[in-house]
Simulated assay, not measured.
Amino acid sequence: MSTNTTIRDRAAGALMGAFIGDALGLGPHWYYDLAELRRDYGEWISGYTDPKPGRYHEGFRAGQLSQAGFILKLTLRSLVECGGYDEKDFCRRLEEELFPLLDGTPISGPGGYTSQSIREAWRRRVKLGLSWDRTGGEADTTEAIERTLAIAVRYAFQPRELASAVADNTVLTQANALVASMTVAFGAVLGLLVRGHALDANLSSKLMDLVKSGELPFHAVTSDNLQPPAPGQPEPPRAGLFASPDALLSPSYMAAAAADPEIRIEPAWKVSLVYGMPCAIYHMLPAAYYLAARFHDDFESAVLHALNGGGQNQARSILTGALVGAQTGLSGIPRRFLDGLEEADELRRLSESLASMVEQR
Rank of each mutant, 00 (worst) to 15 (best):
Arg336Asp: 13
Asp133Thr: 11
Phe60Gly: 02
Glu87Leu: 12
Gly321Gln: 00
Ala255His: 09
Arg125His: 10
Asp209Asn: 08
Ser66Cys: 03
Phe60Met: 06
Ala62Tyr: 07
Ser131Gly: 14
Glu346Thr: 04
Ser108Met: 04
His29Val: 00
Met357Asn: 03
Ile71Glu: 15
Ala256Tyr: 11
Thr222His: 15
Lys212Asn: 13
Val211Arg: 00
Gly83Trp: 06
Ala175Pro: 11
Gly310Cys: 14
Leu273Ile: 06
Lys73Arg: 15
Gly84Tyr: 11
Gly311Thr: 06
Glu43Tyr: 05
Ala156Trp: 01
Gly47Cys: 00
Ser351Cys: 10
Leu162Glu: 12
Arg38Pro: 01
His197Cys: 05
Thr173Tyr: 05
Gly17Leu: 08
Lys88Arg: 08
Ala201Gln: 08
Leu216Asn: 04
Arg160Ala: 05
Arg123His: 15
Ala255Ile: 10
Arg264Tyr: 01
Thr49Glu: 15
Leu307Ala: 09
Gly111Pro: 06
Asp260Trp: 07
Arg92Asn: 15
Val184Cys: 05
Gly69Cys: 12
Ala23Cys: 06
Glu346Cys: 03
Leu128Ile: 06
Leu307Cys: 11
Asp260Gln: 08
Met182Ala: 08
Glu138Met: 08
Gly329Leu: 06
Met284Asn: 12
Ala177Pro: 13
Lys52Gln: 12
Ile118Ser: 01
Phe295Pro: 02
Asn225Val: 09
Gly54Pro: 12
Thr114Glu: 02
Gln227Trp: 07
Gln174Ile: 02
Arg348Asp: 14
Ala11Ile: 04
Thr328Asn: 03
Thr49Gln: 14
Ala280Phe: 13
Val194Leu: 06
Ile263Gln: 09
Trp30Ala: 03
Met16Leu: 15
Trp44His: 14
Glu215Tyr: 08
Glu342Trp: 05
Glu138Gln: 14
Ser78Glu: 14
Asn202Trp: 09
Ala18Gln: 04
Pro231Arg: 02
Asp345Pro: 03
Pro228Trp: 09
Phe19Ser: 00
Phe70Thr: 14
Val358Glu: 10
Trp122Glu: 11
Pro334Asp: 06
Glu262Trp: 08
Asp50Met: 09
Ser244Asp: 04
Arg294Lys: 15
Tyr31Gly: 00
Val171Trp: 11
Met254Tyr: 15
Pro261Phe: 03
Glu346Asn: 06
Thr170Asn: 15
Leu178Gly: 02
Gly47Ala: 00
Thr142Ser: 07
Trp30Asp: 08
Glu352Gln: 01
Ser205Cys: 04
Ser252Lys: 00
Ala306Trp: 04
Pro251Trp: 09
Gly21Asp: 09
Ala293Cys: 09
Phe295Asp: 02
Ala167Met: 08
Gln227His: 10
Pro28Lys: 10
Cys82Pro: 04
Gly136Leu: 07
Tyr41Thr: 05
Ile263Ala: 05
Gly325Trp: 01
Val80Pro: 01
Asn313Gly: 02
Glu266Tyr: 12
Gly109Gln: 05
Leu74Val: 05
Leu307Met: 08
Pro51Leu: 02
Ile45Phe: 02
Ala287Gly: 15
Gly276His: 07
Tyr290Phe: 15
His29Leu: 02
Ser205His: 14
Tyr48Arg: 07
Gly340Glu: 11
Leu65Pro: 07
Arg119Gln: 14
Pro278Glu: 10
